[in-house]
Write a protein that binds this DNA or RNA. Sequence first.
DNA 1: GCCGGCGATATTGCATTCAAAATGTCAGAA
DNA 2: TTCTGACATTTTGAATGCAATATCGCCGGC
Lengths: 259, 259
Amino acid sequence: MDFARKSAYLLRMPLAPTPNEAEASRAPRAPKGALAPGGVSLHGEILGRLRDYIVEGNLADGARVPERQLCEMFGVSRTPLREALKVLASEGIVDLLPNRGARVRTLNERDIHELFDLVAGLEALAGRLACEAISDDEIAEVERLHHDMYGFYLRRDMHRYFEANQLIHRQIVAAARNSALLAAYDTHTARIRRIRYTANLARKYDRWGEAMREHESMLDALRRRAGLELSDILFQHLRNKQAAAIEQLADGHAARPHG
Amino acid sequence: MDFARKSAYLLRMPLAPTPNEAEASRAPRAPKGALAPGGVSLHGEILGRLRDYIVEGNLADGARVPERQLCEMFGVSRTPLREALKVLASEGIVDLLPNRGARVRTLNERDIHELFDLVAGLEALAGRLACEAISDDEIAEVERLHHDMYGFYLRRDMHRYFEANQLIHRQIVAAARNSALLAAYDTHTARIRRIRYTANLARKYDRWGEAMREHESMLDALRRRAGLELSDILFQHLRNKQAAAIEQLADGHAARPHG
DNA sequence: GCCGGCGATATTGCATTCAAAATGTCAGAA
DNA sequence: TTCTGACATTTTGAATGCAATATCGCCGGC
């Protein structure tokens, strides 16, 4: 799950107006969102690390976020950690309960439904914009990723398949050349990352093959720069993932009824 | 709608006697995400008030955010104010410069272009979803607002027209019954609110009439619950606003070249 | 006259402190 | 036993303190 980490992290990289710091061949360019976070301020670093820590599932759903313990773990005082928590709350990663601290936000079926719809909308928009802006090189890059992914599919390498998949989607969103869109995409995909993964992971393989076919037609539309078509394929593709994720969630609940 | 927010807010009032601050009745904004903000915690209250304060233009573009002064104004210490600033930074309202505090984020032409595209995408999604979910009563409500707006248009009451306009758009997004979408919509429209207003305000009236016609067809599509059609109208409508806003921005720059 | 260094001041980022609230413990009554 | 309520402990939310950094004003050199 390396990429996943990285993407959310890169999103918060500073715009670093310091030119001497040649940021040469960094894969996705940092959007120009809030300038500070990254490595400059403790707050920024803690924000990224804590987000990863939670998103990757180190804290159970609904668990309280142990401030003092995390402070020790990160080696900082409570101030920057609490600042990070406020931001994570605004991102929907945690809930803040008055006088009772932060808890890891539990996504119920409705939340997941909403988030997938939202991400589907963002990807649809991205597909439309990307077809107006994407370069031949970028298309070639997507094709390369697609090819890799196909290999992982054939070898049934779930983990790498998932990574390549994420990368393709993000690449398309990035190709839209809209940093606000990309930032929103990263934020919201972070929220459903775990779900999405397990949705792919634990599914019967038939959905997997279906997803591959959908990706084929995505690539086809992208090559022809058929914006509306690509937009529609992406939207449907996400909605199919949504269905799989929700089904998966239901199964999980059935198996482990105590949430 | 957010009674909880308001009531707790009123309770707090005696604490912060700030006359300078226009705490007018603003469009409701209470994404369901994080639970705390609102009125329970100082942080939550300050977050909302500071956001309004900035979005409403009380600080100039690019101006530094005077921590100490705002603390006095709100009657709180620096801690909750700084927490709020981190959140506003993650929303793109301010930039955080390492060791140099927060500055009001200046939107350049490209930012505005991106934000309008993003909001257009969100509204397009909302239109699609809303047609699946909207009730007759909600449609009637939109019609009522539309009628009001038409009255303001005829009377050339720019301010109220603008308010009704915003309300219509938000109503449609709300009708999509997707709180994540609504929250994202609120966040991103907040960022362009000033621009959007002046775009309408200072424009020649021809665009105004055009906008009214577009709203007519929106309403028509909504009545027929023609999701894709509404989606497209909204997208185009926003892109027209975008063009107007950018033109407006260019004019402003020409008139006041030092930004 | 303008530019660049230098010290004084103000501001920032983070740690620490403190009061209020929640949580846990346990004795005693029903 | 199980419930209740007082008390001690922990945790939270916000204020304050403090070192590091930036900003401002002044001066001399060119």
